Amino acid sequence: MTGDTPVLGPDGRTADGSVVADGLRITGRERRPVFGSAFLVSAAALVVGGGIVAGAFAVSWGLFLEAGRTAEGSIANEESYVAYIDQWDALVKVAFGVYPLLGLVAVVLIAWLLTAQAVTVAHVRERANGPDGAALTLRALGRRTRPHVGAAFRIQLLTLACALVPALAGLLVLAVVAMEKVPGVVWPTYHDPATVQFVLVGRILPVAIWALGLVLLYRFLPATAVRVADNCSATAAMRRSWTLTRTTRLRTTGICLSGSVAVTLAFMVLKWFGTYVAHWAGLLMLATTGDNVWVTGVLVIITPVAVALVLLPSVLAPMGVLLACLRERLDAGGRGARTRSGSTTA
């Protein structure tokens, strides 16, 4: 950012170039704490998340077996059938119990991972500007991260709550349009193509609302790094993040959007890799359940996503470094602006 106060790089020299370049430079130099913390998060996700999913299958086991017996009986009698017709409500109840637990685990792990990366960047700056040249071990990283995790968790919850408002608002617009509650807007059919009113209200308006939600989310993303740097409360960190990004909305949105695209592409690649895991998991489940395709089908559907989510922290960790560098650059720019303003006034 032109005119910003210089920020020292990991080697003690002025960090030239973009925030992304600075983040990649730190990620490369501090591979052990960055990817070591990502490995710990992946292991925790595998153990805790896998345990929750395994518990859900255990609770639903009888339902899946009953669905298989019902379907096989209908097929043998040459009768039509609907999958899970008598078990669907109970399976939905189990799912509604599992999803919040998995979401809570994800929020906790993301909070810890982003905090760990902010601590890593802070350690790099301290080592560049001080006599302490010791490397950051995983044990030291965990010790320095622990005091911030509670506030970081609250930051993630508050950010998620703020992002859900426009997300639900966009869905509400779609629902209202689908129910034909908007005068002059009719859902298109095969014989009635989409009208201009429908395109504006049923397509462009929800996308615009969701885009505003993304901008809102991106303005709060540096809050965890703010907490680590300022040791403030969760709400104070979010207010500070909002203030820092006020005059750099486009810059912040561009950097965060680029990181989001990279994470999304990585997720798609990891999900594709997970299909191979799902194949062997499906064969194992078939052998275990006596060719019960009902439970096997559910396992094959969720396995690629589960594999991608477990491996995703290795991509989210550099994103955390990037956010910490962004916070640092925005803070330095704010101090530089205040300094120049004070000099002009004097």
Rank of each mutant, 00 (worst) to 15 (best):
L109W: 01
A178G: 09
P147I: 12
A178C: 07
V186G: 04
E126M: 07
Q156D: 10
C162E: 12
V185H: 06
L157A: 11
T145K: 08
A151P: 03
A122E: 11
L160F: 15
V177C: 07
T145W: 10
G142M: 07
T115C: 12
R127A: 07
L168V: 14
E180C: 01
D132L: 02
T120P: 00
A178Y: 10
W112A: 15
V176E: 11
H148D: 05
A128I: 00
P131N: 05
V108C: 14
P183C: 01
L114R: 03
G130W: 02
C162D: 11
I110W: 15
L138C: 05
L138W: 06
A169S: 14
L164S: 14
P183W: 04
G170S: 15
L158K: 11
A169K: 04
V177F: 07
G130A: 03
L138P: 02
P131H: 05
L158P: 01
V176H: 09
G170N: 14
R125M: 03
A128P: 00
V107R: 11
K181H: 09
A178K: 10
V105N: 04
R139V: 02
L174C: 06
P147N: 11
A175D: 05
T120F: 02
V149E: 05
M179G: 11
Q156N: 12
V185S: 06
Q156M: 14
G133C: 04
L174D: 06
V107L: 15
L141V: 02
A178Q: 12
R154L: 15
A134R: 11
L171G: 13
A116W: 01
A135S: 08
G150D: 05
Q117G: 00
L172T: 15
T120H: 03
P183S: 03
R125E: 08
R139E: 04
V177P: 02
V177Y: 08
A135I: 04
N129F: 00
